[in-house]
Design a protein around this nucleic acid. Sequence first.
DNA 1: GCACAATCGAGAATTTTTTCTTTATTAAAA
DNA 2: TTTTAATAAAGAAAAAATTCTCGATTGTGC
Lengths: 217, 217
Amino acid sequence: MSFSGKLRKHKNAPEPTLRRLPVYLYFLEKVREEGTINISAPVIGKNLKCDPTQVVKDLSVTGIKGKPRVGYNTYELIHALEEYLGFNRTNEAFLVGAGNLGSALLAYQDNQSLGIKLIAAFDVDTEIIGTSIGSIHVLEYNKMFHLANRLNVEIGVLTTPNHVAQKVAEDMVNCGIKAIWNFTSAILDLPDNIIVQNTSLSTSVAVLLRRLNDSEK
Amino acid sequence: MSFSGKLRKHKNAPEPTLRRLPVYLYFLEKVREEGTINISAPVIGKNLKCDPTQVVKDLSVTGIKGKPRVGYNTYELIHALEEYLGFNRTNEAFLVGAGNLGSALLAYQDNQSLGIKLIAAFDVDTEIIGTSIGSIHVLEYNKMFHLANRLNVEIGVLTTPNHVAQKVAEDMVNCGIKAIWNFTSAILDLPDNIIVQNTSLSTSVAVLLRRLNDSEK
DNA sequence: GCACAATCGAGAATTTTTTCTTTATTAAAA
DNA sequence: TTTTAATAAAGAAAAAATTCTCGATTGTGC
């Protein structure tokens, strides 16, 4: 199915915009709980400390129109953002590497939504195979291949040690996984059509430390 | 002490560069273990799938000079990067919120270096106060104020539930913390001189899902 | 020792992203 | 009903980041 039936009304957002969208979404959900029906870009900008025209440009990717003098309908915007980001779909995912970080993610999603749903976890450590973290059982790694045939999972979360990351990533690709959320520091070499989202913690630390050192001159 | 005594020889890197530097660092550490003495920008670029002139520009912020036909000295580069990113300093930090994510970070740093060293963890949950995660004891939240006076901690890691994040962040600032690594979705409103590094997981998911949906047209 | 090929480094050109400006629309006030 | 002020949206300008181009340098092979 190459053409999804419905016209693509939204544009391709630049990545900086894409990274800001979940921030808007979280803020909007908060103000909606407080009963806000309409909200304007200047108000959003004031709260999030960013330029109001930036807000307008960013939100325009969802296709939602605001009204002058009123702003956007909170409810509409939230739904358009969820739709645009894919947060309203199920987005089932496999996780490989149920160590510290892996089990944290598994437990985490029981409380807060990650935007994806981990439906199975795999590891090679016989100590953790068979245990449950949150509501998810940790299965033997080899089971991944079999399970991948039945369930149609497109997303893989990679929380293994660095030195096995490449191998596991290749296995994931062979299982039909299309996108990998990579928490390791490994630089994955995979086919071009595979989407790799690197979320190495040291990247954040680097930015933080540098800004801290700069601020201290 | 406003002037650090030694001349600042490095420039202020743009943020995209800053985020790439830890990737270079990891790669360089790997090739150095394999015995590589010198490495050129084209080789780095080929491995990391990025433009070689980008590599040259990025690495130039460290002040290290490469030689034509040879490239950079691996050892020198690694040290310059560690120095530039601050990874060779201790960077002691407090962590507040020893739930799933918090305890994962605590355990994580025992195996892999984060770039910062968590020296104490705090929580309000009497169930976890007194327990140890990795080599760190979880202390009662109120102890933070007392401990902050003695130790001179500048970095705070925020892994609390969203609804208490603002309050805890303010407490951190009152304890003398200058930089906050924020894992919550809360939008922190703090004095301008406080550095906030947001690392909300949904940001990464957003980019991943959008790219996945785009690729499926 | 001399030509040759590789690569750094600086700056120019291009592209992307952000910010500014203008116009048009809308609700509220007069 | 008319005027006024606020705001979205589109496009222009500015700034930032990336990619391209070229000259200088250095090691390798002839």
